[in-house]
Structures are given as C-alpha cells and as structure tokens.
C-alpha cells in the first residue's frame, strides 16, 4: 500500500487514507452496491424471495404482482400494471 503519485506527503510516506465512502474498483464495491440495492427495494415495500434471492416481488392492491429480477446489474421488471412499473423505475 502506498500513497498515489502527486499526493505524497513528505515525512508521512507510510500513512494511508481512511475511506469514508466506497469507491469504484474496491473489492468491497459489489457488496456495497448490492446492499444499497437491497435496502432500496425493501424500503419500497418489496420482499426478497426466499427461494431465489435474485427475485423481488410485491403484491399490488388488485391482487396482481410486480416482480423484479436482478442479474448482477441487469434487471427485468414484470407486472400487469404499467403505472407500477413506471413508479418502480422512477
């Protein structure tokens, strides 16, 4: 671990920086992205399927469902209600 070029502090070369937020390219970044995504979905009233963790669903008032399938960063949304799809996308 070393300080990046141009940001070297003389006398403190062996110091490192503490990250306050996650960055691109970190080993932990995918996990952070997933956590954020999962929180978002749960805050919006969706349930993660116990049988397949990549499936989120929510029951709508008329008894039909809205599904979201997650594949890394690719998503597929399916529902009978166009309004709900647009609401989720927004």
């Amino acid at each position: 671990m070393s300080q990046p070029d141009g940001f070297k502090v003389t006398g403190k070369e062996n110091w490192v920086c503490k990250l306050k937020k996650s960055l691109y390219g970190l080993k932990q970044s995918p996990r952070q992205w997933y956590k954020r995504f999962d929180n978002f979905m749960i805050e919006h009233g969706y349930t993660r399927s116990q049988f397949d963790n990549c499936v989120y669903f929510r029951k709508l008032l008329d008894g039909s469902f809205i599904y979201l399938l997650l594949y890394v960063d690719d998503m597929l949304i399916a529902s009978k209600s166009k309004v709900e799809i647009d609401r989720l996308k927004a």
Partner: peptide
Amino acid sequence: IWLHGLIEDLG
C-alpha cells in the same frame, strides 16, 4: 420442491 415454492412466492 424448489420450483413449487418459488412460484408460490410469485403468486
């Protein structure tokens, strides 16, 4: 068993 559970989750 797994598929039966999954489709039940999906309504």
